[in-house]
Simulated scan of single mutants.
Amino acid sequence: MLLRRIEEEYGPKGNVTKIDGLSVSFDDWRFNLRKSNTEPVIRLNVESRHNDALMRQKTEELLAKIVR
């Protein structure tokens, strides 16, 4: 349900891949959100090539949606 909700919000704006959880890529950042196979946790990876501030902003934004 969480992955679907995040995909509904971010998917239309980016390029979606579902090989290992939910990955969404944009021009200047991307993220992967997936359930762990060995622990009761959700893993979030956020990357940006040239902009650390954008990466931190998007990480905080996604975490707020995940934790709510």
Rank of each mutant, 00 (worst) to 15 (best):
E47P: 01
F31R: 05
R4N: 15
L44F: 09
V67M: 14
V24L: 09
S48D: 06
T17Y: 09
V67G: 02
K18E: 14
L62F: 12
V16Q: 06
R30V: 04
E39D: 15
N15W: 08
S23W: 01
V46K: 08
S23F: 05
R4M: 01
V41R: 11
N45S: 14
R56C: 06
V24T: 06
P12H: 07
S48H: 05
T59M: 14
K65Q: 14
W29Y: 14
A64Q: 14
M1L: 01
P12I: 00
K65D: 06
R30W: 05
L33E: 06
L33R: 03
V24P: 08
N32P: 03
T17D: 14
K35G: 08
N37A: 11
R5A: 08
P12N: 00
I66C: 05
R30N: 15
I42L: 12
E7A: 10
T17I: 11
L22H: 11
L44Q: 07
R34D: 00
R34M: 01
V41S: 01
R34C: 04
E9T: 12
L33S: 01
S25A: 15
Q57W: 00
N51P: 02
E7M: 02
V46W: 06
I6E: 00
F26G: 10
E60I: 00
G21Q: 01
K13Y: 12
K35C: 03
D28K: 09
P12C: 04
E9R: 13
L2C: 02
G11L: 04
K58E: 13
R5H: 11
A53F: 11
V41C: 01
N32A: 02
F26I: 06
S25E: 15
L62K: 07
V41W: 00
D20P: 08
R49F: 13
R68Y: 06
E9Y: 07
D52P: 08
G11N: 07
L62E: 13
S48E: 01
L44K: 04
I6H: 05
S25H: 09
L62N: 12
